[in-house]
Design a protein around this nucleic acid. Structure first.
Lengths: 110, 110
DNA sequence: TCTCTTAATCGTATATTTGCGATAAAGGAT
DNA sequence: ATCCTTTATCGCAAATATACGATTAAGAGA
């Protein structure tokens, strides 16, 4: 593509898209599940569960962190990750809002 | 990448990821908005609104359709698109479920 | 200090996405 | 029949994403 045109859309649209993008890979969905189920901040335990190399998992974690969906703190030689509920709620409600808005304003067609 | 490993995750994880992927671009979010606001099945009107070429918009529409988020029917020389509410609700509830599940099982950490 | 464990990052290969212009297909209008 | 409008598809270029092994960094423990 010549130049990516994502910037030409509204900030809200970009934010929603970024959030969706962070979830747009089964590995990252799986990571979020693991983070919740373990009831504690795991790190390399995720690597044991997923069918991916350590470096790949680390990369996915980085993306989740960049998207703001998880927080990570360094704890000695290991890293501790946990879900950022605030961000999650925010995006969840924004999605719901979008769905709602779509639903109420729409008449059937096709 | 050697081989994409998406297949090694659960079907549910893959489905959620596919849904998220369909939403993972501001143009597609914008398209969904337009489809709802117009209160009718638009087609090329979308092209007028978005800062993208016709072929690019057509491609995004195709992706949304493939993901099952919208339906499209051919209506004479033009095409008619509308949102597939069933699929939307399904995925919305599955997302909510995921969020819920994460929330209730999680203790704070980090 | 030296080693071990753990995790991030670098470099690289490959696959996918994004975007556009050009072209094709398919009805409608004259 | 011929053109016009509308939209899908093809072919291509460039940007991103995915994945891995190798390496680096950094603390823990002997």
């Amino acid at each position: 593509m010549a130049i990516h045109k994502k910037e030409e859309f509204s900030q809200k649209e970009q934010d929603l898209a970024s959030f969706a993008k962070a979830l747009a890979h089964p590995a990252r969905i799986a990571i979020l599940k693991v983070l919740a189920q373990k009831n504690e901040c795991i790190c390399g335990d995720i690597v044991d569960v997923l069918p991916l190399a350590q470096s790949t998992v680390s990369q996915h974690l980085k993306e989740l962190k960049n998207a703001g969906l998880i927080d990570g703190t360094i704890d000695g030689p290991r890293s501790c990750y946990c879900i950022n509920w605030k961000a999650f709620e925010k995006f969840n409600s924004e999605f719901s809002f979008l769905f709602q808005k779509l639903k109420t304003t729409n008449a059937k067609c096709c």
